[in-house]
Structure formats: C-alpha cells, structure tokens
Nucleic acid binder design. Structure first.
Length: 506
RNA sequence: GGCCGAGUGGCAGAAUGGUUUAUGCAGAGGAUUGCAAAUCCUUUUAUGUCGGUUCGAUUCCGGUCUCGGCCUCCA
C-alpha cells in the first residue's frame, strides 16, 4: 500500500491525535453507543452511526477482523414515559422504534454491527457488576438505590478536563447522593422492573454499556465511540465503572463526533428541531444524505442545510452518472443481493471479509451490467478501466490515507471526485466508495410506486429510444419530443451525444 | 463561572507553513445541440480581529471579539 499508511485518531481522552496501536491486530474491538429506542433517530443521531460505520468499514479494510458492538438501549425513563403517553406496552414501543431504526439504517447503507446487544438481555450481568462494584467499595446502597461513589476513582474528572465542574453544577445534591457527581447504578421501579438484591428495580443508564462491553469485548477494548454529548456524564461514568470493576481502562481510544446543527443550534429530540430520515428521503436519495453527513469532518459541527444536501445530491448524481453512464442497475444483480445480505444478517463471517466482498461484488456488478449500455459508451468505459495510475496516484491509497488521518472523510470524498473526473481505475474507485459505504444501487426502488429501472421493461425503453432516433432523423421533432417526455415520466433521462443517445435513471 | 469547539469568497464547505487557494451551487462569457439536457473551456469574489514565532501563516502560538456545545436526558 502507500508509504503513509499509519493510522491515527483523535483521542478525546488525551485531547490529541494519537497513533492507533491495536491491542490485538488480529481482532480490533470497537464499541459504539447505539440508539435509545423511544423515538426514531433523527439525522443527527444518524451522523454518529454513519461516521462509525465508516470507521468499522475502514478498519475492516485494514485488519483481518474487526468486532464492532453497537448496543440498543431498550430500557430507560424516556421509553417508559413515551409508552405511557402513547398508552402502549413499552416492549411494543421499542419493537416499533427498533424496526424503524433498522430500516433507516438499511437506507443509509449502515452495516449491522457484529453484535447488537440489548440492555434488557444483560440485566443479570448488570446486577452482578453492580454487586461487584459495591464489594470493591466503589458503590453504596441507600433506600433501595445503588449509587456509584465518584470520589473513589481519583481520575474521575480527568476525562472531561473539568467539563464537570467541582462546583457550580446545576444539579442539586439529593439525599441519596453523597457527592454531586455520584450517579445511580440501580433504582427502584414499579412499572418495568427486575428482581435484585436491592428490591424490584432497573439499572441506571451508564452501567448498561459497561456490562455489555465488558461481557462481549472485555477490557480494554480498542475504541469507544459516540456523540460528543456522551463524554459527560455517560462515558466519564463508564470509564469510572470499568475501573471500579477491573482496575483498568475499559477502552484505549475514545472517539466522539460533533453534532448536526440547525441554524447553528444543536439538533436534538428534546429541542424538537429534528429531521428524521423519513422526512428527508422524500426529497433526497439516502446515499446523498450519507455523502452529506460525510462531507464534514466528524469532529466538526455540521450545519444542516438544503444547499448542503443539494450539493451532496449533485456529487452523488455525478459519481453515479460518470461511473455507470447509461448502465441501469436492477435489483436482481449480485451487488444488490450482497448488500442486503450484509445488512440483514448480523452474525455471519461475511462481515469480517466485508471489504473483500464489497470490492468483488461492486466490481462484478460493473462487469455484469456492461451490456446494458447503448451504443457508443463502451469505449469510454474501457478507457476508465485501463487508465489506472497514470500519474502515480492510486485512488484506493489516497482514500485510505485520508481515512488514516483521523477519519478524514471530506478529503476522501474529494479524492474520489478527482479520480472519477480523471477516470481512474473504476474498480478501485468502487472499492473506495465501498469503504465510505457509498453504493450505487437504489434500495428504495422496491418501494417506489413511481416507475423505476428495476420495475421497467428494458426492451420498452430501448424501443422508445430507437423510435425517437428515427423521428429525429426524419426531423419530426414534435414526435421525438413527445417520446422524450414519455421517458421522462417513467424516470429516464436522455442525452444526445455525438456518440449516440445515452439514457440513465434519474 | 469551569471546560471544549468553531469563525474561509454571493452561498455551502474542504485543505494547506510558501509558485496554480479544492469542490459544488449561483453569476459572467464561450463551445456543442433541431431544441433540451448533459458535458467541456474561460472567468469574478475569501481565510473574524490584534499581536508573536518564521525568510514566509489562512495554517503554529498568545490575546481579543463573535457564535455554538457540555456541566440535567441527549449521537
């Protein structure tokens, strides 16, 4: 590969970029905080999932195995509250929201993590861990609550660089807590509860992630990631719990993404200024949304804007057009199937070979669909396939280098744009796109009630195109324009080039 | 109050210690076209502010201003 292939990430704990040295090169372990499923995630939540999906894909392209855990928080105050408001069982609510989350993830081409544990499946682990924390002197019991004693961990405030101030906190000390930063490990609950040594109750939020990551990955795992707002208190507390349990750091590197803002204010469920995917996909291709989310560096704020989405749409349309020209992709092809396999089946070995499978399938999809082109475009494609490396720049390497430098996705996108413009090796471009999780198969087609390529009769299109050509040759422009309108209606665009007529979906 | 981050052209938004300041949209001119679309070519406008380091800073450092985030659930 390239000379500059050293990977480094910004470690929020050290507040600086650090060389990435895995604990075990043969199995990279990542834990990401997943969604709390009381409400469909909005585009801001998805920024996190998309960014760390790229991390997963990228490391999978570099190391033989990556174990990626992203949990589902399916028990928490807000879930119970929301279920009450809607007057449905809390398990029905979580089932519904989870389903939406998964289908949105498929749209955005977010891979299933290797493991996707649910908090409620790990209650026993949590109780065991809480007992251990009490035993180790890191927690105390009061009024059927178990509280973590933050003063027992002397590095507690290191993490957030005094983000949690010693004085001036806005929460009042309660009778339960001895110290202001102390937090709940277990609390009584009457609605949804589990039996425990401290009575019927349920776990606090922070212990959920600790117990699941400890059980599945073990400490220390390599990278713990999530949104910036989780640094305090969530990750600060996880780190403290990990120390209290094992006397070691739970994670080596911590990565946090910045937010999606609206009018320069944070998008959040509580501020009710959110956009969810269902809303956005009415007007934009999910892949354009994915590009939009990756067009900014993950540690910078991303301001949501129509113009930004439009730009991303343009980029995607341009890539698609340049790469596929007039080649229609239908849902029967191999790439589509493989994509769905990867997304739907979380426990196959396929993920460990994700990078290879993506590259192979993207490549074979191109080869297979080459015949779909009408006259004149073939020579062009051959050119693209053969013009590798003319100026010594390997697209795959430059994308890899960009991502090696603290996951610089905007630079990677720029490199791909350049490579497409120059006409670099097409298969390498597609591999690069696959690392960013950008695919050129529209998964929405199957639900699209308007016409689309996958449901269209290719013979019909070709015959209409031919009829129009005859009309044009006879200078019957009224008729030729009619046919063009007809094709536009079913979603086919035409281009009259000197090499003949080209058509594509769009 | 403590801590963190951001400030780039008409707009969006990257990159970088130094001859050509990405990219997209918008604007202007041109090529091509039956028309359209697309494409191509040419072209205008920028690094909040004040200092410092340097041969040279938009890039590094410090001050300052403005905006945002966390300190309460939050990706």
């Amino acid at each position: 590969m390239s000379l500059n292939n050293q990977i480094s990430f910004f470690n929020s704990l050290a507040l600086k970029k650090e060389k990435f040295i895995p604990n075990d090169e043969n199995n990279i372990k990542i834990y990401a905080c997943g969604p709390t499923i009381y409400k469909s995630p909005h585009i801001g939540n998805f920024r996190s999932f998309v960014v760390f999906d790229v991390l997963f894909r990228f490391l999978s392209s570099k190391y033989p195995k990556v174990t990626y855990v992203r949990n589902i928080t399916d028990i928490d105050d807000k879930i119970i509250h929301e279920a009450k408001v809607r007057n449905i069982a809390y398990s029905d609510l979580t089932a519904e929201v989870y389903e939406n989350f998964k289908s949105d993830s498929v749209k955005l081409n977010i891979l299933n993590p290797t493991y996707e544990p649910r908090a409620t499946d790990y209650i026993k682990n949590m109780i065991r861990d809480i007992e251990k924390l009490v035993e180790n002197g890191f927690a105390y019991v009061k009024d059927n609550h178990v509280i973590f004693d933050t003063t027992k961990y002397d590095k507690y405030r290191d993490f957030c660089k005094n983000m949690c101030s010693e004085s001036g906190s806005r929460i009042a000390l309660t009778d339960l807590k001895k110290h202001e930063n102390d937090f709940v490990l277990w609390k009584p609950s009457s609605d949804v509860f589990w039996d425990s040594p401290w009575g019927n109750g349920r776990p606090g939020w922070h212990i959920e992630c600790t117990s699941m990551s400890k059980e599945i990955l073990g400490f220390p795992f390599d990278i713990h990631c999530g949104g910036q707002d989780l640094i305090f208190p969530h990750h600060t507390n996880e780190r403290a719990q990990g120390w209290g349990l094992c006397n070691k750091e739970c994670a080596t590197y911590w990565m946090h993404n910045h937010f999606v803002n609206i009018d320069n204010n944070k998008m959040s469920k509580s501020a009710n200024n959110q956009f969810d995917l269902a809303f956005l996909t009415k007007n934009y291709d999910p892949m354009a949304i994915r590009i939009f989310l990756l067009m900014s560096h993950y540690r910078h704020p991303l301001n949501w804007s129509e113009s930004g989405l439009k730009e991303a749409s343009n980029i995607y349309a341009k890539w698609k057009k340049n790469l596929f020209d007039v080649i229609p992709l239908d849902k029967e092809n191999a790439l589509y199937k493989r994509d769905l396999d990867n997304v739907n089946d979380s426990n196959t070995d396929a993920q460990n070979k994700l990078y290879d499978s993506f590259s192979d399938n993207e490549a074979s999809a191109i080869d297979a669909s080459g015949q779909g082109s009408s006259d004149g475009s073939k020579g062009n494609d051959d050119n693209k396939l053969n013009s590798d490396n003319e100026d010594g720049i390997e697209i795959l390497d430059s994308v890899s280098d960009a991502l090696s430098d603290d996951l610089n996705t905007p630079l990677a996108i720029k490199k791909i744009s350049e490579a497409i413009k120059i006409g670099h090796n097409m298969q390498n471009i597609l591999k690069s796109c696959a690392i960013l999780g950008i695919t050129f198969v529209n998964k929405e087609n199957s639900n699209d009630q308007n016409g689309n390529v996958s449901s269209l009769d290719l013979d019909l299109i070709n015959s209409l195109v031919q009829k129009r050509e005859i009309a044009r040759k006879n200078k019957d422009y009224n008729k030729s324009d009619e046919i063009r309108d007809e094709l536009t209606k079913i979603g086919i665009k035409l281009e009259d080039t000197k090499d003949g007529v080209k058509w594509y979906e769009g």
